[in-house]
Computed example of a mutant assay.
Amino acid sequence: MILVFGSTGQVATELRALLPDAEFLGRDVADLSDPAACAGAIEARRPTAVINAAAYTAVDKAESDEATAHAVNGLAPSAMAQACAVLDIPFVHISTDYVFDGAGEAPFGVDHPTAPLGAYGRTKLAGEEGVRAAGSRFAIMRTSWVFSAHGGNFVKTMLRLGAERDVLTIVADQVGGPTPARDIAAACVAMAEQLGADAAKSGTYHFSGAPDVSWADFAREIFAQAGITCTVKDIETRDFPTPAKRPANSRMDCSATETIFGIARPEWKSGLADVLTDLGVTK
């Protein structure tokens, strides 16, 4: 039995479709602000593998609530990984491009020095470090720009705003890979299965959609596929200030994921089409 932390988030929802026999622990059962309780849940259930699809993802709120974000994103995954190490079972943990500073234009390799710009990135990096230190059969999957038909995300926001307005101003100087949650879920399952057979595959990996694109061009593709006549006007990050600083460069080198696990970067445009179909959006 696979144990999944997370129940209603984008990736957890997609995992439900892939893993009908898995057990999903939502906030009502597993309080990620209590790391010991998370470890205890694993010890009590003794699963065959654990996937952590839960996190504190309120990037701006984390700036003023870093202690809670650190408990959820840093301490809880560390405790989970330690419990998995004791049982010698695979642990797959989802991380983020926010562990990097977003400088330059080249894709970040898995071994590139980390330098988070804000609280969210710092807490996610703390989780990564704890998972690596536990020494379990683990895969840390850094991903970016997650979207699906579930929960709140950029695609659903654009569909709503695009239907309401004739013109939208969207940031064009941040570039990354939009990633369908469905593909992230499938990759997590594949990683867990392969780690069960080969602990040597343990490590940190990148997984994001291709090709890399700006938020503005992502919005244009959403409108094009949805048949929404809304004009996108490019703006710079400085024109849209937020409490937390966003990385300008979220490009990630995903080659190791394909080499080690045989998992290629997903084509986000086809993933977008699937999401629009799920949402009942037609031209």
Rank of each mutant, 00 (worst) to 15 (best):
I170W: 01
L32A: 10
A126L: 10
M191F: 10
P20W: 07
L117V: 05
A103K: 12
L279E: 11
R122L: 12
G127L: 00
I170K: 10
E267D: 15
D166T: 15
V232Q: 06
A119R: 12
E128N: 03
R27A: 14
A190M: 15
R122F: 03
V175Y: 03
A17S: 15
F100H: 02
E258L: 04
T179W: 00
E66T: 14
L161M: 14
E164T: 14
D88E: 15
I2T: 15
F5L: 08
F108W: 14
P211A: 00
Y98E: 05
L15I: 02
L117S: 07
V167W: 13
Y205I: 01
C230W: 04
A139L: 00
P116W: 03
L117G: 11
A200P: 04
F5E: 00
S202G: 06
E66K: 08
P113E: 09
C254D: 04
S270V: 05
C38M: 03
L159V: 13
A200Y: 07
G135M: 05
A126H: 06
A133W: 06
L272G: 01
D253A: 07
D234L: 11
F100C: 01
P247V: 07
R265M: 09
V171K: 02
G109F: 00
A210Q: 13
R132T: 13
A133G: 12
Y120C: 00
N249F: 00
E128S: 13
Q10E: 13
A36D: 13
V29K: 05
R238D: 14
D60Q: 02
G104E: 08
L117N: 07
L279Q: 04
N73W: 07
E128F: 02
A256I: 02
S250M: 13
H112A: 13
A69L: 05
I184M: 11
F240S: 15
A83K: 00
T259S: 00
E193P: 10
A44S: 11
A192W: 05
G209W: 03
H150K: 13
G280I: 14
P266I: 05
P241T: 08
S33M: 12
R46E: 11
G109P: 04
R182E: 12
V146L: 09
A264W: 00
A12M: 04
L3V: 08
L125R: 05
R16Q: 14
G227N: 11
V146D: 10
E221I: 09
V146H: 10
L87T: 03
G209Y: 01
P211S: 06
G9V: 01
A187I: 01
A185T: 08
F108A: 13
A79Y: 02
G151K: 06
A224F: 09
G151H: 07
P116G: 12
T237Y: 09
R265I: 08
F100Q: 01
P90S: 07
F223S: 04
Y120S: 08
M80L: 13
E193K: 14
L3G: 01
S255W: 10
A181C: 12
E66P: 06
P243F: 02
V29C: 06
E66F: 05
T231S: 15
G203M: 01
V11E: 03
A172I: 11
T242K: 15
C84D: 07
V110G: 00
K269G: 09
K233I: 15
P47L: 07
L125D: 11
Y205M: 03
